[in-house]
Nucleic acid binder design. Structure first.
Length: 423
DNA sequence: TCTGGGGTCCTAGGACCC
DNA sequence: TCTGGGGTCCTAGGACCC
């Protein structure tokens, strides 16, 4: 039997915050989104207090703090670094690993045939990560990714369990699936759940028993794969090599809404600059830049969502071209008279940066400029990476709307100035 | 007063071709 | 009044994920 494991960090962001604050062990912890908008992570204790995922902070703040809850603004420098450490440890334990998200990875266990050995391996993995990094993980093992996900779900629910669960015998799988509502299956969200419920499919077992042809014709090949995976048929492989990105988005909600074009413009410029950095870091060029602006969907005022794309005649990765495109796109989608709450820049239609498709009408002397431009971008990127901030004029440094992050913990592991010190 | 950000995949439908 | 069949490529939008 070909087994694979899903390693999932327990309440990851909350665990990261707790790692450097052992005094917070057993205390409720929540982590907030940008601008301290809503709750994006909760410790076990916070969940027990009834704090729901995604709930706006201002709604629960008073009662939560009054009950001794701890709160943090999101500290992605810290989470990203600890995630790398966890993944690095896991990489040392198997040949084939797919880092699926900041707090999850799939491990290929094909070298382990016996399910008891797989379970023991899971326990070993869990102990090593705990000892070397200090982040608690949960491990689900099964014959497919979908079943491994479900197994990790079981591991979480099991009170007083070992944090590792292996799901491989067909009777055991049936038993688990009969008690698992479909909306808890990986890949089945709110909409699909509703549509499946309309067909009297409620438990994962009901879904597993469905005719795959019917599922494919009524839904999609994606759901068909899920059904097959529930039956133990591997449709999704553990993919070691990361596919190059297909789009890059930089977007933010604002602390204060604005209807002023002149206030949006430097914001969009900032996003465009950041997007350009990411693009070059990926070693890619883009042929399209898009701008999106939107009012708050929670607002009672008039709603508007603007989106406009600009096409480049040649793929670019030069920030100045991206800035020019983004500014044009903003002008095209901006409408007077709305209170904008969110904006962003999206880069797409990528090609590798070493490929250069010339336009028929290009100036032949341009290749020299091209080289100069690349050198300039590289120079600016490295200066910014060193902390010597270089700005483009349209960014209007200092004018950008600041973000609320009042409760952020130190960058314990990524900044010399914020290293934890012995008290 | 205050409600995140960044991705992927699939499908339908339009444009275009012969 | 009546107007083919088969294919590709691209994009927008909808679904999902963490």
């Amino acid at each position: 039997m070909n087994l694979l494991a899903l390693v999932d960090c327990d309440n990851f962001y909350a665990s990261c915050e707790r790692l450097f604050r052992p005094d917070l062990r057993k205390k409720p912890i929540v982590v907030l989104s940008n601008n301290d908008g809503c709750v994006i992570a909760r410790s076990k204790e916070a969940k027990a207090m009834g704090i729901k995922m995604g709930v706006p902070w201002f709604q629960i703040k008073k009662a939560y703090l009054a009950n001794g809850g701890q709160v943090f603004s999101s500290n992605f420098a810290l989470y990203g670094d600890l995630s790398n450490r966890v993944m690095h440890v896991l990489e040392g334990m198997v040949n084939n690993i797919e880092v699926y998200s900041i707090d999850e990875a799939f491990l290929d266990l094909h070298h382990i045939q016996n399910s008891n050995h797989a379970y023991e391996f899971g326990i070993h993995c869990r102990n090593i990560v705990d000892q070397w990094v200090g982040i608690p993980v949960r491990i689900g093992i099964g014959p497919t990714k979908t079943l491994a996900k479900i197994a990790s779900h079981v591991a979480k629910k099991k009170i007083g369990g070992t944090g590792v669960f292996c799901l491989h015998e067909s009777l055991q799988i049936e038993h688990v699936l009969k008690h698992l509502p479909i909306n808890e299956i990986w890949g089945i969200g709110r909409n699909l759940s509703r549509r499946l419920n309309d067909l009297s499919i409620y438990s994962s077992y009901d879904l597993m028993k469905m005719d795959t042809r019917l599922i494919r014709s009524k839904f999609s090949v994606v759901l068909e794969r899920t059904v097959r995976e529930l039956r133990g048929e591997q449709c999704l492989a553990v993919q070691n090599d990361r596919e190059p990105k297909k789009q890059i988005i930089v977007s933010r909600s604002f602390r204060e809404r604005t209807g002023d074009f002149n206030q949006l413009k430097p914001l969009i410029s900032n996003f465009a600059v950041r997007a350009g950095e990411k693009l070059r870091h990926e070693g890619q060029k883009c042929s399209q830049v898009s701008v999106l602006i939107a009012t708050s969907p929670f607002s009672k005022q008039a709603q508007y969502r603007g989106f406009h794309s600009i096409q480049f005649s040649n793929p670019v990765n030069d920030t100045r071209s991206i800035l020019a495109g983004a500014n044009q796109a903003l002008q095209d989608c901006f409408r007077q008279g709305y209170a904008y709450a969110k904006a962003g820049v999206l880069l797409s239609q990528f090609s590798h940066s070493s490929v250069m498709q010339r336009s028929l009408f290009d100036d032949l002397h341009k290749s020299f400029d091209q080289k100069q431009n690349e050198d300039l971008m590289r120079c600016i990127d490295s200066m910014n990476a060193e902390g010597l901030q270089v700005y483009y004029a349209s960014q209007c440094p200092g004018q950008a709307l600041p973000m609320n992050k009042k409760m952020m913990s130190p960058k314990y592991t990524t900044s010399w100035l914020e290293l934890p010190t012995a008290k």
